[in-house]
Design a protein around this nucleic acid. Structure first.
Lengths: 247, 247
DNA sequence: CGCTGCATTGAAATATCTCAATCAATGTGG
DNA sequence: CCACATTGATTGAGATATTTCAATGCAGCG
């Protein structure tokens, strides 16, 4: 089913079968994007939102003089631009990292879903709140950690999120983020990112395998170094959407 | 009316009179907090959310060794911890900056509101999406601007948001953010914040008046320096909640 | 007067950036 | 198979930005 992983990284329990069917039915088509392809451009008026069926996407703010800041990652199961449904315009671009498959869901269809299924409406709201919480982690990372810690935290977050959708085996990070991507996500230069990776390697926390792949050698140490708490945001079960249902 | 400015900085049109009445009725009590007082602590289980009737509040992540990162500001009219309604726990603390008045709204009451008034539910969702968009601006600021630019952008954002709730006269910023607050929000040291303020003064962009008050001398230049676009996020009218209603 | 909180300054230590190369792996055309 | 271009990773060295530590200034206030 297309929606097997729908919001899986964001809910702490499964959706109702009827809800899943409705969501599946709301998909107008699926689209395959080549790596490094832009799906949504900043400022565009939107009539669809896209659900990520496979692959990884980057969300980024582009600025003057080629400067680019990555503001978030989307993994399998995420609705990559759901906020575009409510905002109609989006303040940043969304691009594929590797080859991705996305499911197009027209806003009209979402409107029907949320009108007819209040519980699902809340689930969708909830999933956008998780984005905001992750953004706050990023703000913390950029404001308070040095280059090494920032990279460590990004890796920690990725491991936690991928583990949640069963895409992490505990060793190899299957997300081909290049060092230049880490640099753009962590607010540091490419050269400095490279040197920070060297430090992390020298400490025995990870190995780089080339082409953006990484082997994790000591995840707890990475979490510690980056003050990352894989706690209630990234799924130890405390955070239940059900809380929201009876709230 | 307590809700005169309810979400005013976040909506681009007024609420329906009936909606306002319901919101007003949902307020259990109002509470006055002294400056620098914590309203909500990170990790607490919540049964209420608070609407900010007057004053300014800080949202912050506290970390090891006294490190603190301010992750957002709340101004009059904002629902400071609405996401706590859906998440039940909050990933950061919320504290008053100056003396503030907040209106306590029990989550039970919010549940009724959103059940009975779907339009209002969407408005509330929308307002949390604006938080996320502002967070992304902060990520950009911390990742891509130097100390001077970061301070300039924070000031630019404040001016735009305060102007939107008619709390900015174009000259004096009435928010008593200390230089140490700017430092904690911009991810720089206090000393460096001070030096950056000196540069901004020397360029003729602003004056400091002591105790956290600032006189704006050249807002367009501040916007330019910080690549701040007071565009659709901060209220040029393009961003309509109405888009969300008929969507 | 002597606090206390905030702003300011100097000087040395670090972190990070920029520029400019080099290297290794891979793919492509002849 | 070789020559060459391309992409991503790596390194060195000097320039800049930022932090840290330690003082000082300055105002309000009991």
């Amino acid at each position: 089913m297309l929606t097997d992983l729908f919001l899986k990284g964001r809910l702490r329990h499964d959706l109702d079968p009827q809800e899943r069917e409705r969501i599946d039915a709301a998909v107008a088509e699926t689209v395959v994007l080549k790596p490094r392809t832009t799906l949504v451009r900043s400022g565009e008026w939107l009539e669809n939102s896209y659900y990520l069926v496979s692959g990884t996407m980057l969300r980024h703010i582009d600025a003057a003089r080629g400067k680019r800041q990555i503001v978030g990652l989307s993994v399998v199961g995420d609705f990559v631009d759901l906020h575009g449904y409510a905002m109609k315009r989006i303040d940043h671009g969304v691009s594929s990292l590797d080859e991705v498959t996305v499911a197009r869901v027209p806003h009209k269809a979402i409107s029907e879903l949320v009108r007819e299924m209040p519980h699902l409406a809340r689930v969708l709201w909830f999933s956008t709140l998780l984005d905001a919480a992750m953004h706050r982690e990023w703000i913390f990372r950029l404001g308070r950690l040095n280059a090494e810690g920032r990279i460590a935290q990004l890796i920690s977050e990725l491991c936690a999120r991928l583990a949640f959708v069963n895409k992490f085996d505990g060793r190899r990070l299957t997300v081909p983020l290049l060092q230049s991507d880490y640099a753009e996500a962590c607010g540091i230069s490419l050269v400095h990112a490279n040197r920070s990776f060297r430090q992390l390697k020298d400490r025995g926390l990870l190995d780089t395998l080339g082409d953006g792949y990484i082997e994790i050698r000591d995840l707890p140490a990475l979490n510690r170094l980056s003050e990352f708490k894989p706690d209630y945001l990234y799924g130890d079960g405390n955070l239940q959407v059900s809380a929201l249902v009876d709230g």
